[in-house]
Design a protein around this nucleic acid. Structure first.
Lengths: 86, 86
DNA sequence: CATAAATCCTGACGAACGTAAGGATTTATT
DNA sequence: AATAAATCCTTACGTTCGTCAGGATTTATG
C-alpha cells in the first residue's frame, strides 16, 4: 500500500501502524532497530525533528520502502549522476 | 518517474538532478527554499546527516513527492490512526 | 475496581546539526 | 589561456538532536 507523505509529520502514523501490525512494543522495536525507545516514540508522534538517517534506519527496520516521484525533466540528469558521471 | 531510495544518501543525486533540470544555482535555490547554500550542497552530496524536516522542506521546494510503501498488514491500523482515532 | 503492561513525559548532558563568512577548487565562457 | 561563474571546502558558534534514567499517565486484563 502506497502512502504519499504531505507533511514531514505524516511519517509518524505510518511507523506506528507498521509496528502495531507486527505486534511489537516500542521498547523491543527500538532495541532491534538500534535507537532509543524515546526516539521511536517521538518519531511516531510526528518526528519532531529527527535526523534523516535515523528515520531511514527506522523505516528500514520496519520494512517500509521510501520512494520519491520526480518530474520527468530531471530523468536525464539523474541517470547521469547515478552512473557516477559528472 | 519513481525512484526507490535504498540508502539514506540516495536522496542526494535526486535533489541535484531536479535542481539542475530547473537550471537554478544552489545559491538561489537554497534561498528560495529557506535553507543555507552550505546545507543544500551537503544534501546533494548524500545528506551527511541532515534533519528530516529540513530535507522534507527541500523536497517540497523542488516539487519532489515522497511516497512510502508499507506492508498490507498495516493498512487497517493506519486507517484508524489517520482518522484521528486512537 | 485492582493490577499489570505499555506508552508517554521530563530533565540533563554529550554529540551533531545548520548557518554564516571567507577562501579554494572546479567548471564554463570568450 | 584568461576571466568569470558556480560549486565546494574549511572554521567557528549557537541551536537542536539523541540517549539515558526516572517517574507519570494511559491502556489492557482479570
Amino acid at each position: 500500500m502506497k502512502i504519499k507523505l504531505q507533511k514531514a509529520s505524516d511519517i509518524g502514523p505510518v511507523v506506528r501502524a507498521v509496528r502495531k501490525a507486527q505486534r511489537i512494543r516500542q521498547d523491543d522495536m527500538a532495541g532491534s532497530i538500534g535507537v532509543s525507545e524515546n526516539f521511536l516514540a517521538k518519531v511516531e508522534h510526528g518526528g519532531g525533528n529527527a535526523q534523516w538517517t535515523k528515520v531511514f534506519q527506522v523505516l528500514e527496520g520496519l520494512g517500509i520502502e521510501l520512494v520519491c516521484d520526480i518530474p520527468d525533466d530531471a530523468e536525464d540528469f539523474l541517470a547521469g549522476y547515478m552512473r557516477g558521471g559528472s
